[in-house]
């Protein structure tokens, strides 16, 4: 005999709460909107009042800010570049860290509308991870385009100019340049692979964690669910950090190599 309670497994499909015309609004979208409102409130009602002499909350928040910045500096190896991409990396980290743990607020995911939960852990929906991954890869390519210039940026993926130059020199050089073209095509595929790897890694981890949580909560009513919930929170933060770190690494790889290091 085992003690426990039954709970429905979160659907892998997006759960549409209502539709605006033909456009379905999923519960993960609503949760992200709730988070956006929370961030906006935090910014307007608290961060706007930050002063030069910090209080406890400000000191804590600044510590988090500087830790994230330090992480980005460590990954990119350059403070100036780190400051450039900090908003996107910081947002991804905070966004996923909160998104992964917000559903732990008791009762939040139990509010329903027409039999469908209004809120759901956003990252347990593949569409959230995909949306953010696409945004991150687009941002990275825009930064890369700005860094290299249009022609050089195109040359990274399709170095056709080098083929002509190579064949003008010698057949061997031309052949090597052809290999570079194939490598360029692989780079394009690599960009798509980045989107897939980033989103699937996150989605897989978070969804698997939720499935495991349901199983554990179904089997044990006491002690273990608490430990598992705490661990879920930790894993959620970790996943956010992994995602943000990977984006920062992709960013530093897309930049021109520089002599200057962390200053």
């Amino acid at each position: 005999m085992s003690l426990g309670f039954t709970r429905e497994l979160t659907s892998i499909q997006p759960e549409i709460v209502f539709s605006i015309g033909n456009f379905g609004i999923a519960n993960s979208t609503l949760m992200i909107l709730l988070m956006a409102i929370m961030f906006l409130c935090l910014g307007i009602f608290s961060i706007r009042k930050f002063t030069l002499i910090p209080g406890k909350f400000q000191a804590g928040f600044e510590m988090v800010y500087e830790s994230i910045l330090g992480l980005v500096v460590q990954i990119t190896g350059n403070k100036k570049q780190a400051e450039k991409i900090f908003p996107i990396i910081g947002t991804i980290l905070v966004y996923f860290s909160i998104a992964n743990v917000i559903a732990l607020i008791p009762g939040l995911t139990d509010i329903t509308y027409a039999g469908t939960a209004i809120f759901r852990t956003p990252t347990s929906d593949i569409n959230t991870a995909l949306g953010v991954s696409i945004a991150a890869v687009i941002a990275l390519n825009l930064v890369s385009l700005k860094e290299w210039g249009t022609m050089e940026y195109i040359g990274l993926y399709l170095p056709i100019k080098n083929v002509f130059k190579g064949f003008k020199k010698s057949f061997m050089d031309g052949f090597v340049a052809m290999v570079d073209v194939f490598v360029g095509v692989l780079n394009i595929i690599g960009e798509l692979a980045k989107i897939i790897s980033l989103s699937f890694r996150l989605f897989g981890n978070v969804y698997a964690g939720q499935v495991l949580a349901i199983i554990i909560m179904g089997a044990f009513a006491y002690v273990l669910p608490t430990i598992w919930t705490l661990m879920s929170g930790f894993t959620g933060l970790l996943q956010g950090m992994v995602f943000a770190s990977l984006v920062a690494v992709y960013y530093s790889l897309s930049l021109k190599p520089q002599e200057d290091s962390s200053e």
């Binding site: 988070m35 956006a36 961030f39 910014g43 947002t91 905070v94 966004y95 953010v132």
Partner: peptide, 17 residues
Amino acid sequence: ANFINFMIILFIMKKYV
């Protein structure tokens, strides 16, 4: 929708946080 929402959050975080 989630992509647009993320962009909104990115804007809020950059401007207000």
